[in-house]
Design a protein around this nucleic acid. Structure first.
Lengths: 236, 236
DNA sequence: AGCGCAACCATTGTAGACAATATGTATTTT
DNA sequence: AAAATACATATTGTCTACAATGGTTGCGCT
């Protein structure tokens, strides 16, 4: 009975994370405690505990007497993300290469298989979640409790941004997904070899790939038509 | 009534943070829900919410069916701290210099006054908390939700380590506290001037001061007495 | 007709009682 | 006598019911 309750609570936690990452629950949306607690067959107090935890992890924001809101994504969010991501990703990847255990490397390989499968057969949500999982494992490898909080926060919004901007129509993204998958294989190789420096560089390259893709959606391609020539004697 | 309840809950949260930072609640210690809820005159469900939140912030660790434990500090904690601290401190300080608002600068100056006062009149806990507050404000100035989680995690253990190693007897630490206070004034000046590069360098210098002090306690000064001469014809 | 105020309703916050799990102890068995 | 098991107790986890807050709607007043 309580064993079921435990699993229901855990299921609720993981499901809320998944639904927020995939934007099934949209940024800024408010969550109804009664509705959710009934859906997962738990009562409100344990759900409220979970919401506090999710707030701590950066998935939601709590407002006094106004409940939990899925963490919003503003223009500033994106700017801050671009500033913090390369540093944290590089640092974490470097540490991962230094500290990864064989068991963790096996889990990373499994995650990569699932990522390849998601690219082949899955939808955008499958790909985004498989990618998140791959990078979360690298985070675990780094084994640094002071850097992981920021990494986790980055992965939340990276995943959500990915869901937003990866248009299934854009043929360019298909190529880039393959490229990303190849880089994942390189991550595995470099981490397994313990080459911290190269791993950090790869993290930067991987970030640049993602960054370019995001920017191409945020900043649409410029119109490639030059201005007409200036009239003869205009002042500079 | 509920207004009082709100304030009791908030008071409980802040007090638990304070007691953990000052090691009044020692690393590794287990917390009794009933005892704490009675002490702060709130019931257990809201307290459990607070414990989840504190877990998210890194103050405590939750164990299934075994309650909340004040976040332990192991040898590995210290190693990881040394690895992560300079990078995060430098990055956050740089961003602070770029983004600080006049209102935040005023608050930083107030915090510095309190820090000076704590050095003059306060005990170790006063100093540690005033210092934590000063650096937390710099964190707010940086205004980057992806870096702040790691900064907050660092400040928790930095403060606790400070409480552990700052011996009131050691005359050296008094000098170093004055040095640290002078550096705080420089932080304010550079942030107010918006000199991001210099602020980042100062953050590194400030870190090195703290680092040296911590290391001098972890690695005690070596005994400076040479061995006696070896007897004439002993084998090597 | 528009603005303001007040009562209502929906939703969040809290309390106290109950269920389940883990630990420690005592008893029994080998 | 030592070890294992079963029970008792203390502590965590959960649920239902109640209190309080905030937003909303309708009514009255200007």
């Amino acid at each position: 009975m309580s064993e079921n309750s435990k699993s229901r609570k855990l299921r609720c936690l993981e499901d809320l994370r998944r639904r927020i990452l995939t934007q099934e629950l949209e940024p800024g949306e408010y969550l109804d405690e009664t509705e959710i607690s009934e859906a997962y067959e738990i009562s409100r107090p344990p759900l409220r505990e979970l919401l506090r935890q999710l707030a701590g992890e950066g998935y939601v924001v709590l407002h006094e007497n106004r409940g939990a809101q899925v963490a919003p994504m503003t223009h500033k969010t994106l700017r801050n993300f671009f500033v913090a991501a390369p540093m944290i990703y590089a640092a974490v990847t470097k540490l991962a290469a230094e500290h990864a255990t064989p068991a963790q490397i096996m889990r990373l390989k499994d995650a990569q298989l699932l990522f390849r499968a998601a690219i082949r057969d899955g939808d955008a949500a499958d790909r985004a979640l498989a990618n998140e999982r791959f990078h979360a494992i690298i985070g675990e490898m780094a084994d640094n409790e002071f850097l992981l909080p920021s990494l986790r926060r980055l992965l939340i919004d990276h995943t959500r941004i990915g869901m937003t901007f990866y248009s299934p129509r854009n043929p360019r993204t298909a190529e880039q997904r393959d490229l990303a998958a190849d880089q994942h294989d390189q991550f595995i190789a470099l981490i397994e070899a313990g080459d911290a420096e190269a791993a950090a560089n790869l993290a930067i390259a991987h970030w640049e790939l993602s960054r370019a893709e995001i920017e191409s959606f945020v900043t649409p391609a410029s119109i490639d038509i030059p201005l007409g020539p200036a009239p003869a004697s205009q002042a500079t």
